[in-house]
Design a protein around this nucleic acid. Structure first.
Lengths: 184, 184
DNA sequence: CAGGCCATGTAAAAGGTTACATGATTCG
DNA sequence: CGAATCATGTAACCTTTTACATGGCCTG
């Protein structure tokens, strides 16, 4: 429901070709709305069809040739509207919480390694966000755009912190349970 | 990828009919893996086909008749394996963070009301979780199952707290930006 | 016996994932 | 000129969402 909006945002930040967009969906925008090149090309086609974006004129419009897109007024209007739209948060759907609940029924065998693996992944992601924060948002800057983008990044940072804390708790809990096996 | 596992977990906790499962996916299990009755019926069919669950024998196997399912050994084995499986966390895909980023480009008009609405929703969800915590997990209990399920619930609680904090920050930031409009 | 709810489904469309295809450019 | 890489796509499939369909049971 929001991939077109993610693309419009990315293109307003900087007109790009499909592949450039794909790369930015592997970092930047993609930290909050992930996508693949297949989806992106499909959506670029749709957005062009519907008059929200257009391909910048090029001499050689053929397969394998780079095509740059820019946002048209209709696209900007659509995005502006979406920012204020009424749209409920999606219900949580998290496989790891679910697995923990399954473990409560069928046992925790093998779970610890997986929790530790996830913990390491989230620590790495946190480090990445923090390094971006250092590079892009030094204390003195405060242009409007920067403040909002920094806020988004802080959301990512605190989300990772949440997982790190929860996983740490979970591992502690698991250690206690395994210390007195089979029904205390 | 995990709906079948969610259903297996729910059925192990208590054998149920499709509609009973649907109700439990509106609370309980559904707090961490949401689903609708259409998906649930389809998946029950598949799980029965593949020999992971079976319908309890009934006199009147007809449309409109209640059908209860229970988990078979193969289903339990599948779930046990999944608990320890290697499965990476899904990349974040959050519309509100994305909208904030869009707002950095097209402006924040109308955003405040929406943030406040989300804040209220998350506060309500937090209250719901906390009331469940009071009812289901009083301090003295510590059976293995309860400890793990409590851990899952605390995950939900801290997730809501994260959103409440972030939204509070966001509203503060917005107020500051609006206090000195158009490029300060 | 009408209306509402219980209960189980079907169908279609949209969104997302995975695998594969194809032309253009560059570099050794 | 062969291989790698850039760049754009197609196709098939699976999951999720939304809308609708159907029959049974209960209650006034």
């Amino acid at each position: 429901m929001s991939l077109p909006h993610a693309i419009l945002t990315a293109l307003l930040e900087k007109p790009s070709s499909g592949l450039e967009l794909t790369r930015r969906f592997d970092r930047s925008i993609g930290y909050f709305w992930s996508s693949t090149h297949q989806q992106i090309y499909r959506e670029l086609g749709r957005l062009e069809q519907s008059g929200h974006i257009r391909a910048l004129p090029s001499e050689v419009p053929a397969r394998g040739q780079k095509k740059e897109y820019e946002v048209l007024p209709a696209g900007r209007a659509e995005l502006t509207e979406w920012v204020a739209a009424r749209e409920d948060p999606k219900p949580v759907r998290d496989a790891l919480l679910l697995r923990m609940r399954a473990a409560a029924v069928v046992g925790t065998a093998g779970l610890r390694a997986e929790l530790e693996r996830h913990l390491a992944l989230h620590r790495r992601q946190l480090e990445e966000y923090r390094s971006i924060e250092e590079r892009h948002f030094p204390p003195e800057r405060d242009a409007e755009e920067d403040r909002l983008r920094h806020l988004v990044l802080r959301g990512g940072i605190d989300m990772e912190r949440f997982w790190i804390e929860w996983l740490t708790q979970a591992l502690k809990e698991l250690a206690e349970l395994e210390a007195r096996p089979a029904g205390a």
